[in-house]
């Protein structure tokens, strides 16, 4: 088993205030997908990320606000899971609810073991 990080970009923005039904249906989808991973013992952790942020840059450690990227490019959340290899990790990623919208992207990255 190897460890993978999924980065979520894009997808339909979910607003509980605007449409509670839609929000609930979406939450149900996340529950199903992640619940499945959990049952197979593959889920490590996952969190959505808020829109705003800070950036600390370079030697001077300059602090600026926000990623301020276009919505679709911004990382909106992550998930860590265990999988055999890239192929199976990608199969898992295909179930992500963020892909229900055509703008959704899941970036699948394997955790690198640093050779000592």
């Amino acid at each position: 088993m190897k460890e993978y990080l999924f980065l979520f970009r894009g997808g339909e923005a979910m607003d509980k205030e605007r449409s509670p039904e839609k929000w609930q249906a979406n939450m149900q989808k996340w529950m199903q997908w992640m619940g499945g991973l959990q049952q197979k013992g593959q889920l490590v952790s996952a969190q959505p990320l808020s829109q705003e942020g800070k950036q600390v840059k370079g030697i001077k450690k300059t602090v600026t606000d926000g990623p301020f990227m276009e919505g679709k490019e911004m990382v909106g959340g992550y998930l860590m899971c265990k999988a055999e290899n890239y192929a199976t990790a990608v199969e898992l990623a295909k179930g992500c609810p963020i892909l229900d919208d055509d703008s959704g992207v899941v970036e699948v990255r394997e955790i690198q073991e640093i050779i000592m």
Partner: peptide, 10 residues
């Protein structure tokens, strides 16, 4: 299943 309680998604 308590792990699902630690993610804001679920």
């Amino acid at each position: 299943s308590r792990i699902l309680l630690t993610s804001e998604y679920t």
